[in-house]
Amino acid sequence: MTTFKLIINGKTLKGEITIEAVDAAEAEKIFKQYANDNGIDGEWTYDDATKTFTVTE
C-alpha cells in the first residue's frame, strides 16, 4: 500500500485527506468519490513525485 494525499481547494471546503491505496488509480477513484459526495466539482491535478492529488474549484 502507498500513501496518497488529496488537497482540497474548494469554494466552501478546504483541507487535506490522506489515504492508503494500492496505486494512484485506486486513490483517484476514492478521492473523486469523496469529492462527489461532498459536492466538490473542480479541476484535478496529480503529482506522482509527491503522490498528491489536488482539486480546485
Rank of each mutant, 00 (worst) to 15 (best):
I7Q: 11
A24H: 12
N38L: 05
K29E: 02
E16L: 09
T2H: 15
N9Q: 10
T18W: 12
T45C: 04
E57V: 04
K32N: 05
L13C: 02
G39K: 07
T12D: 11
D41C: 07
D48Y: 05
F4M: 01
Y34N: 04
W44C: 01
K5H: 12
I17Q: 07
I7P: 00
T12L: 10
A27M: 01
Y46T: 02
E28G: 15
E43I: 07
Q33H: 12
I7Y: 12
A21D: 06
V55A: 05
M1H: 15
M1R: 01
T50R: 14
D48E: 07
T50V: 04
G42F: 01
N36I: 11
K5C: 02
I30Q: 07
T56V: 14
D47L: 10
G15Q: 08
T3E: 09
T56I: 06
E57K: 10
T50M: 09
T50P: 04
M1Y: 15
I8T: 06
Y34M: 14
I7T: 05
K5L: 14
D37Y: 14
A25C: 04
G10Y: 13
K51H: 03
T2V: 15
Q33P: 04
N38I: 04
N38S: 07
E16R: 09
K14S: 06
T12E: 02
I17L: 08
E28T: 12
I30L: 08
I19C: 01
I19Y: 12
E16K: 04
T3L: 07
L13Q: 14
A35F: 03
K32T: 08
I8C: 03
G10Q: 08
T54F: 01
T12Q: 05
T2L: 11
A25P: 06
V55R: 00
I19R: 01
A25N: 12
T56D: 03
A49H: 14
I7S: 05
Y46P: 00
L13R: 06
D37I: 13
N9R: 10
K29S: 05
E28P: 00
N9C: 03
I19E: 06
K14V: 12
F53E: 00
E43G: 13
W44D: 00
T18F: 06
T52Y: 09
I30C: 03
D23E: 11
K11R: 04
D23Y: 12
I7D: 05
V22Y: 03
F31K: 00
I30A: 04
F4Y: 11
I17R: 04
I17H: 12
F53L: 02
A25W: 05
W44G: 00
E26T: 09
K51F: 08
N38A: 10
M1N: 07
K11P: 03
I8L: 10
M1T: 10
I30V: 13
T54N: 05
T56Y: 10
E16P: 07
T18D: 07
E26P: 05
I40Q: 08
E57C: 04
T52C: 01
E16C: 03
G10V: 09
I8V: 13
Q33I: 14
L6G: 03
K32F: 09
E26M: 13
E57D: 08
A21K: 08
Y46Q: 05
M1G: 14
I30G: 04
D48I: 05
D41L: 09
K51P: 01
A25K: 15
V22W: 12
L6N: 01
A27P: 01
T54S: 08
F53T: 02
K51Q: 09
D23V: 14
K14M: 08
A49G: 07
T52N: 14
T3A: 07
K51C: 03
W44S: 01
A49Y: 02
K29N: 05
A25I: 02
T45W: 10
T56F: 07
I7G: 03
E26D: 14
Y34F: 06
I17E: 07
I40T: 05
E28L: 11
A35R: 07
K14Y: 14
K14A: 05
K51A: 13
A35V: 10
I40R: 02
A24R: 12
I30T: 08
E20I: 09
K5T: 07
D37S: 15
W44H: 01
F31C: 01
N38P: 01
N9K: 13
A27F: 00
T56C: 03
N9Y: 08
K32S: 11
N36L: 14
N9P: 03
F31M: 04
A24P: 14
A25D: 11
T2F: 11
V22P: 05
T45M: 15
N38T: 08
E28C: 03
A24I: 10
K51T: 09
F53G: 00
F31D: 00
K51D: 01
D37C: 03
V22C: 03
A24F: 13
D48M: 09
E20S: 03
E26H: 13
K11T: 11
Y34R: 10
A24C: 02
Y34A: 04
K32C: 02
G15R: 15
T2G: 04
G42E: 02
T12K: 08
Y46G: 00
V22H: 07
T45Q: 14
I7W: 15
A49D: 13
I40H: 14
L6Y: 02
I19N: 14
G39T: 12
K14T: 05
D47Y: 10
K11H: 02
A24D: 07
A35H: 01
E20H: 02
A25L: 13
L6V: 04
A21P: 00
I8R: 01
I40V: 05
M1I: 11
K29F: 03
K5W: 15
T52R: 11
K32R: 06
E26N: 06
Y46M: 06
E16G: 04
A25S: 15
K14Q: 05
T45N: 10
K29P: 14
F53I: 01
T3K: 04
N38E: 06
T50E: 05
T45S: 12
F4V: 01
E28Q: 08
T54P: 00
T12P: 15
N36H: 15
I17A: 07
G10L: 12
I17T: 10
D47C: 05
V55E: 00
D23G: 15
E20A: 07
D41A: 13
